[in-house]
């Protein structure tokens, strides 16, 4: 799976592929990271609808690089999340059907929101786990 799928090449002679957009995005990333360090909470940068060429995307991804964390989330399709080589800068990529990239953004902070477990899910899980234990107990009892 590459980002190329989003921007299939129509011709061997498209206009200059590196448009300078990646440079602009990187500058924005730097600015937001500085704000985060100063204690602010900053919104993510959404790459989905940006007029980036596939070269721009590759350039951006390559220059942000890979850091220490890589995660895959399986929920309503697959998602890939990794911390870039710059701590606090996260690359979040959601896939739709057929492994198509559905949305893509750069998030800032300790970890992207999607990695945290939601309180509602946790309480549901607690209930489920309790119920599962109860039924196991019951089975054990009947077994005796």
């Amino acid at each position: 799976m590459t980002t190329q799928a989003l921007h299939p090449s129509v011709s061997p002679q498209e206009p200059p592929r590196l448009t300078g957009m990646s440079e602009a995005v990187l500058a924005e990333v730097a600015a937001r990271l500085a704000e985060v360090v100063a204690g602010a909470s900053v919104p993510p940068i959404d790459l989905t609808a940006m007029p980036l060429t596939s070269e721009d995307r590759a350039d951006l991804e390559q220059r942000l690089g890979r850091g220490e964390v890589f995660a895959t989330v399986e929920s309503a399709g697959r998602s890939q999340i990794w911390e870039t080589q710059f701590s606090g800068v996260w690359f979040v990529r959601h896939f739709g059907e057929n492994d198509r990239i559905a949305s893509e953004c750069i998030e800032f902070g300790a970890a992207p929101e999607i990695l945290f477990s939601h309180r509602a899910d946790m309480s549901a899980a607690a209930r489920r786990l309790a119920a599962a234990l109860q039924s196991a107990d019951a089975r054990e009892k009947t077994d005796h």
Partner: peptide, 27 residues
């Protein structure tokens, strides 16, 4: 959806997808 085992992450994911295509204010 909880009943069907769909987590809140799915909501979040769908929401981030929608806010991207609808260009809703970041965050």
């Amino acid at each position: 959806l909880q009943e069907r085992g769909v987590s809140r992450r799915a909501f979040l994911k769908y929401a981030s997808y929608l806010s991207a295509v609808m260009a809703l204010p970041a965050g």
